[in-house]
Amino acid sequence: MIEAAPTEKRLLRLDMMPHMLCPGCGHGIVFDAMLRVLARRYETLDGVAFVAGIGCSSRVVGYVDSATMHTTHGRPLTFATGLKLARPDLKVIVVTGDGDGLSIGGNHLIHAARRNIDLTCVLFNNEIYGMTGGQLAPTTVPGAFTSTSPEGNHEEPFDAARLVEAAGATFVARAQSFRTRLFEEVFAEALDHPGFSFVEVLTDCTEYFGRTNHLGTGADLLFAQGREEPAVDADLATRPTLRPVPEKRTRPTLATGVLHRSRRSTLEEAMGLVGGAR
């Protein structure tokens, strides 16, 4: 049935499905969109390798019928750097999350961007650590409740796209899980871009972020994205807490689409690994 269908499902390891993501998880939506883009370009994924870290987002590579590597927490870009330099013929796609890519792996992210190595990095940003039970992330909006910010988050979040652009990435885009067609467009452009291409995609954790912050179901969260509504429920400010939430704020309406594009030598070009120098 599905095996015969001419869809992106042919790129799945069917014996691993169904996947382990929660009902309504935005990651599954983004993952499917990635597969649709790849299915339009590749009959099979033999020339592609996927490298992922640790976390809910990183688990999706295990379901792709390709060369897939589920590495250590925060370090997928380091593995991908070595793989790409040793095998410039491979298209290497890195899947990471906001905790994996911006917290424990933040150093590797800025250095990969600085090197302009020809990798495509997709960062699933759901503002929380889902795999470990809903803890505070470096992307959590101020005021939001998580299992480790019971009084509301006191910290400012990273703007991942601007951070990576400042570090030297030559292609930076942002998309949402709700607007899958936009994600497909920017992901396809990222794959075509020579050099470090970075796509931040805002997705929703229904079980931890959504539930803890009274944001409703997966469908409610998706529709909120569609309406560009704040990412934290307005009623939260009145929720009884140990002390009042300081300066109640919400996830700002962030620009989406291709945010930055430039061209300079990739690391492989500079090292003479591609382009016929050797």
Binding site: G28, I29, F31, F178, L222
Partner: peptide, 16 residues
């Protein structure tokens, strides 16, 4: 429905 299904469970096939 197919695009937004987080479980990759829905296929819309025109031929079918």
């Amino acid at each position: 429905c197919s695009w937004l299904c987080p479980d990759l469970a829905i296929d819309v096939s025109y031929q079918a």
